[in-house]
């Protein structure tokens, strides 16, 4: 790897290549680097909750939300519908990014507007899901499985909401007359973030609607049984 060989350089020696060896111009924009780190940070937070979730799922009082016909997520058309919304949001953002590349301002505006709006719809949909659960008697403190459902989806929605704020900012900048190339990095970042949150949601969706047997298998595979 380039990184490791860079760490073996002897900096006290004069460099035959001259001082231009490192040149900051070009390469990945800083926003991309920062976004990558941010996504790593968010991933770590969620991974840590996953780990506690898997550990906790093996305790006797844990009652999964699927596995028996009467459980709320044994069949989950509701969640499939919200998933479709988020997929559409992600696609819209992707469209915005495509439009940046093809230099079509209308496409950018349309893409981020639809993407941001659908994200809000998704958050609203999650809100109705929470109400649905509470009305069924699956309140947050009834069982750890419910608590984790609320925790995971709540944090996910919160992150999505943060993304919406960033999109609004891009929107305002375009409204103020920023050219497409000036917001290109931002649109790219938002698109990556939307895809990431979609992937995270799919993972959450998968994880939260499993049966106790599946949890036992996953936990055992992770050495947490």
């Amino acid at each position: 790897m380039r990184g490791f060989s860079a760490l073996t350089e002897k900096p006290w020696l004069a460099m035959p290549q001259g001082p231009m060896q490192f040149d900051p111009e070009g390469g990945t924009p800083s926003a991309q680097i920062a976004l990558r780190f941010l996504l790593m940070v968010i991933s770590i937070a969620f991974i840590l909750i996953f780990v506690t979730f898997l550990t906790r799922s093996q305790y006797p009082d844990f009652q999964a939300l699927a596995g028996e016909p009467w459980l709320p997520f044994n069949q989950s058309p509701r969640l499939w519908a919200t998933t479709a919304v988020l997929v559409a949001a992600s696609a819209a953002m992707h469209w915005a990014w495509r439009s940046v590349k093809t230099q079509r301002p209308d496409g950018v505006m349309l893409g981020i507007s639809v993407g941001g709006f659908l994200a809000l719809v998704f958050i609203m949909a999650q809100w109705t899901t929470w109400n649905y659960l509470v009305n069924l008697g699956y309140g947050v403190s009834e069982n750890p499985a419910n608590a984790y459902f609320f925790l995971f989806t709540g944090l996910h929605a919160l992150h999505l909401f943060g993304g919406v704020l960033a999109v609004v900012r891009v929107f305002i900048r375009i409204g103020r007359g920023c050219s497409i190339s000036q917001v290109a990095v931002a649109v790219k970042a938002c698109t990556t973030y939307w895809h990431y949150l979609l992937a995270l949601w799919l993972l959450l969706f998968f994880l939260l609607t499993r049966t106790p047997e599946t949890y036992a298998i996953i936990a055992a595979a992770c050495g947490l049984g």
Partner: peptide, 17 residues
């Protein structure tokens, strides 16, 4: 901090310098 150190170093500022 991380982005600045990784991305914004001036000319000639290699990691090991």
């Amino acid at each position: 901090y991380v982005s600045t150190i990784l991305q914004a170093r001036t000319r000639g500022m290699t990691l090991m310098r």
